[in-house]
Amino acid sequence: MDEVMSNIIEVKNVTYEYTDEENRFTAVKDLSLDIERGSFTVILGHNGSGKSTLAKMLNGLNKPTRGDVFVDGINTKAEETEIEVKRKVGMVFQNPDNQIIASIVEEDVAFGPENLGIPPLEIRRRVDNALEAVDMSDFKKSTPHHLSGGQKQRIAIAGMIAMEPECLVLDEPTAMLDPKGRAEIISTLLRLNREKGMTVVLITHYMEEAENADRVIVMNDGEIIADDKPKVIFSDVKMLKDVGLDVPQTAELLYKLKSNGFKVDTHALSIKEAAEQIIKALGTSYTDSEEK
């Protein structure tokens, strides 16, 4: 009877409208989407594509104007289960400074479980585990103010993990970070997904962050315009550039070569793969000398 559903989140024909005195703006248009348990999904879209509005609907922070969102079978519109939904879907935002509540790292991580009324010893265990999971145990007594952006963002992730959610939704968590911080966050998320089986929904406009995802969804103008494996999505560099997305330089190079008549496969993303494609396109004389 209590069969575990394979989808943790189901978005069914959801529309979201912002309204003020004069304007009415539809941010998300009749969108449907399932997030499978244990998957790593990346949602790509430029600023204003509706991706943040969608993200906030996944944990009930935004309620759909029309349509329904189900988290583990629970409709996010139901008031009595609001807290339960938020616990199941942890949410991390762009600015790490504005989601850290306490002045000591471990006390901040404890904030969520404390709100859930969990016994003190159990909170202690969860906080230690969560900090371990984001590799920040050494900083548990530190002041968040003195940490780097990437470290602060990992604390924010730990704060969510401590609530033992089923799924993590991250709304542009790397937008304000330097390259080092960005790399830290992406590798943390991959590890959580691969080792702990955490379902991850990562929203970003950096295409290269989607490289290791199971599935990439591209949003534009409130709608899903592509939904496939990263390799397939990335082979369509033109579409990605058209919707205003960041394209890694390897993809850009291959794309330009292709439009200049080179026979290259444009979905190669890594530096090695790109070089191999170019060598292949240049002709056989070079492929032979590859092993030296």
């Binding site: 390897t250 530096i271 070089a275 070079y286």
Partner: peptide, 24 residues
């Protein structure tokens, strides 16, 4: 730059490319 790193790989593979390529 990434494109320069692609060119490192090309050079390693024996493709006669110059080492001052920094833009696409």
């Amino acid at each position: 730059p990434i494109v320069t790193r692609v060119f490192y790989e090309l050079k390693k593979a024996g493709v006669p490319v110059p080492d001052n390529v920094f833009t696409v």
